[in-house]
């Protein structure tokens, strides 16, 4: 089977140019440059504290850029309002504690915020969009459930539905599989691939190289605030590279999945 990299021909949606990121008085990372194309899944791998979340928040405009520029369709995002950004880029934060017992539907409808005027409440049209997103993620039955009482996997899917309700072109997901059981991890990864097929560009971070093999078109390795490599998973995620990244010895194996006639790479620790 010939692997065709579709994304190279597609339009550019996001570009980072020599971005330095961090908090006031404390620089986490510097010289981050990469491009993101339509319908592409770019997966960030890196050890704890390497700056993935900080980089993501910088792209989203939640933290001020320290240097460089982020371009959305060749327009610098520092000249965009938060409202304008939120129509293009949606964020799925890491699992978080919810404070108030909103229903799942209410949470998803909040994703309509960038499309609503300051004094407006969601309309039936917005509710229909929220319902469509719930159904797309197969959690339509949860709409009246209390968000704080559903399972971790259902919460993660709710946050993805909320991000989709923003109707974004770019989705940034911070460790969407962390804290999920095995089945839910696979369901979320499948949804990510599904969304990319619909043309949404996706940036995710994960702690599991296998997840990168399963869903990523390209991988970026982030260590100590620097992007040390970007490229296709099969080319970049080598034994040596993973050892440099995580400081453990691993073996990347290629396995044949019999009845699918597919080769799949997996990462096996050697300790």
């Amino acid at each position: 089977m010939v692997v065709v990299s579709l994304w190279e021909d597609l339009e550019l949606s996001l570009r980072l140019d020599e971005v330095a990121f961090g908090y006031p008085g404390h620089t986490v990372g510097a010289a981050a440059s990469f491009e993101l194309h339509s319908g592409e899944v770019l997966c960030f791998l890196g050890p704890n504290g390497c700056g993935k979340t900080t980089l993501f928040k910088t792209i989203l405009g939640l933290i001020d850029l320290q240097a460089g520029a982020v371009y959305l369709d060749d327009r610098s995002t520092s000249s965009c309002s938060q409202m304008h950004l939120a129509r293009a880029i949606a964020y799925v934060p890491q699992q978080h504690d919810a404070y108030f017992p909103f229903t799942v539907l209410e949470v998803v409808m909040m994703g309509r915020s960038p499309h609503l005027g300051l004094f407006k409440s969601p309309t039936r049209h917005d509710e229909a969009i929220a319902d469509a997103m719930l159904n797309q993620l197969n959690i339509g039955h949860l709409r009246e459930e209390i968000y704080t009482r559903v399972s971790g996997g259902e919460r993660q899917l709710t946050l993805i539905a909320r991000a989709l309700a923003q109707e974004p072109r770019i989705l940034i997901m911070d460790e969407p599989t962390t804290n999920l059981d095995f089945g839910n991890q696979i369901k979320v990864l499948a949804q990510i691939k599904n969304l990319a097929r619909q043309g949404i560009s996706i940036i995710i971070s994960t702690h599991d190289p296998d997840h990168a093999f399963q869903c990523a078109d390209r991988v970026a390795m982030l260590k100590g605030g620097s992007i040390i490599a970007v490229g296709k998973p099969a080319e970049i995620l080598t034994d040596d590279a993973l050892q440099v990244l995580y400081d453990v010895r691993v073996k990347v194996m290629e396995v044949r999945i019999p009845h699918l006639h597919k080769l799949r790479r997996i990462c096996i620790p050697l300790n």
Binding site: L60, G61, L62, Q82, Y91
Partner: peptide, 8 residues
């Protein structure tokens, strides 16, 4: 942060 990510 979440409110700002939602455009507020």
């Amino acid at each position: 942060e979440e409110a700002r990510a939602l455009g507020a």
